[in-house]
């Protein structure tokens, strides 16, 4: 789950990047309205955490501009201004949720998961594909009732595939979802993670589409 954090306070920005990263999100951070708009244009995000008071303007402008471009990405406003009129203005400008500072890191993560879930059209917290159960909040996976221990990256790959059953995700799309911009990626990192996933989950889950990428099996073997 790739999240864009727009926050100009360095300590808080670092905290959100590390904290949400630990909660299973891939976090990109920017500090200004201009960078936020550019980032939203450049790459797809599953959700945006947006501060309102930014050095070059209001986060609401970024939000309005994104909504004007029909960008459906869920947006969580995170701001020191949390009076009722401020909340109303934020929600009416197109935000999906509102959290006042200071907030609880786990709550931010939970709200982001809920926003992403809703955006994908699901009501339940965990995702099921055949006999595979994936719980994004607890970061646990089970197959046929048996718990499967996955690393953070493996979990993220499975989460990406299971969110879009039948859709083929290319290696670069998966890399984008797994790693931040600054992170070093080994050329065969995705192949290694897929290999490990297959070993842990057993056969009949991940299928390789030659020359394109990976997807969940079309039909039961």
């Amino acid at each position: 789950m790739r999240v864009l954090v727009v926050e100009d306070d360095e300590v808080l920005m670092d905290g959100l990047q590390v904290g949400l990263g630990l909660a299973g999100f891939t976090v990109e951070t920017v500090a200004t309205c201009a960078d936020a708009s550019a980032a939203l244009r450049a790459a797809p995000f599953d959700a945006v955490v947006l501060d309102l008071m930014l050095p070059d303007g209001s986060g609401l402008d970024v939000l309005a501009e994104a909504r004007a471009r029909q960008l459906p990405t869920p947006v969580l406003l995170l701001t020191a201004r949390d009076s009722v009129p401020d909340r109303i203005a934020g929600l009416d400008a197109g935000a999906d949720d509102y959290l006042g500072k200071p907030f609880d890191l786990d709550e931010v993560a939970a709200r982001l998961r809920a926003l992403i879930r809703r955006a994908a059209g699901r009501a339940t917290a965990s995702v099921q594909w055949r006999d595979v159960m994936l719980d994004p909040a607890a970061m646990t996976v089970s197959r046929a009732g048996e718990a499967v221990r996955l690393s953070r990256r493996e979990f993220a790959i499975l989460h990406a595939l299971i969110d879009r059953p039948g859709q083929v995700l290319s290696k670069s799309q998966l890399e984008e979802r797994l790693y931040g911009w600054q992170e070093e990626i080994g050329s065969n990192a995705i192949e290694v993670h897929i290999h490990n996933l297959r070993a842990k989950l057993g056969t009949g889950v991940i299928e390789t589409v030659r020359g394109v990428g990976y997807r969940l099996m079309e039909a039961a073997p």
């Binding site: 300590v11 905290g15 630990l22 008071m53 995170l78 020191a80 201004r81 500072k101 200071p102 609880d104």
Partner: peptide, 26 residues
């Protein structure tokens, strides 16, 4: 008050990271 809330939020977030993570570097 607004200005103080942001650094306080940062402090709280970082403190939660310290509490919730075993990795020494983090």
């Amino acid at each position: 008050a607004h200005e103080l809330r942001t650094p306080i939020a940062g402090l709280k977030t970082q403190a939660q990271i310290v509490l919730g993570h075993g990795d020494a570097t983090v």
